[in-house]
Design a protein around this nucleic acid. Structure first.
Lengths: 179, 179
DNA sequence: GTCTATATAAAGATAGAC
DNA sequence: GTCTATCTTTATATAGAC
């Protein structure tokens, strides 16, 4: 694996495990067996590593949102958005868990702020034309469930598929008024 | 207000706004107009401030859990636990938001680890005797909704009561199988 | 109870050798 | 592409004066 990629892998691991602000470039470098200076060759700043990390996932989420924006605002559309979003999360579970559990630290970083905007647009996609507060709250609950539901995977689910199905079922009910 | 209390107020504000690891004692001291050394007079370490901050809320949550443990494991008990928990969160919304949005940073701090254990015990209280994965997930969704639901307060709710009612209603449905 | 002064360690970042 | 060496800033924390 190339160094740049290894930095991103180990950085995500440390960011998710210890927190963004609590992780130093020294730790990242040590894990790989290179020096801090070598990290700076591949990334201009620490924030830049985070940017790289969130870039791919961000683009994929944007694609879902774009697709949703072109569809009629029906429960069926909301369902399909949930399906696509849940599938993406399943692929990038670690990134999403990191984003979910480090909101405060990310608020003042460009990449984090962009993620928050994205979540806002996703939220809008998951509500009807004239939503009441209850509907907005259900949409939020659906997003939170998709983000954090995988917490239960190890202890309470026997397979990824079982976990994924359970998450998708609950999120779907939440955005289609079946509650 | 006494200095010790002012430190806790400003610390919570900064921790919630910028993150725990991203907040320095210097910043806390500056906000109050005292020096770092003065902060060290009132608290032995930075973690100690956090401990003080979570102590009161932690005890109150423990009381709810204790009460719940003495009750039969019925949907009615779950409902009452949700009611009591939602009410506590409403009082200490800022602390709870901080806890919810800084999970990673708190994982390796005593006070934070204790909070996570508490959440585990609360989770158990909100499920039946032989829960399936779907039920566990609904209980998790209920907790997440209570923790993060207040995010919608400013933009989408006209009053604290309206917000509180909406959160309580959704959380109640989630733990009583009405979904 | 709050201060000055300082110790000590570690952070992010850069310059330039190899 | 990775290193050594170094800069600058900031962090947590302590000792001791007032």
């Amino acid at each position: 694996m190339e160094t740049r990629e290894r930095i991103m892998v180990e950085a995500l691991d440390l960011f998710a495990e210890r927190g963004y602000g609590e992780t130093s470039l020294r730790e990242i470098a040590e894990r790989i067996g290179i020096t801090k200076a070598a990290v700076y060759y591949h990334f201009k700043t620490k924030d830049d590593i985070l940017n790289g990390l969130l870039d791919s996932m961000g683009q994929q989420i944007d694609a879902i949102i774009e697709w949703g924006n072109d569809q009629p605002r029906t429960p069926e559309t909301r369902l399909e958005v949930v399906r696509r979003y849940a599938a993406k999360i399943r692929e990038g579970a670690k990134v999403m868990r990191f984003l979910h559990e480090n909101q405060t630290a990310l608020r003042h970083i460009d990449a984090g702020a962009r993620f928050r905007e994205r979540m806002g647009r996703l939220h809008v996609l998951l509500i009807g034309e004239t939503p009441d507060l209850a509907e907005r709250l259900r949409a939020l609950a659906a997003i939170l469930t998709m983000h954090a539901g995988w917490m239960l995977r190890e202890e309470h689910a026997s397979s990824d598929k079982e976990m994924s199905d359970a998450i998708l079922e609950l999120a779907s009910k939440l955005v289609t008024d079946k509650i």
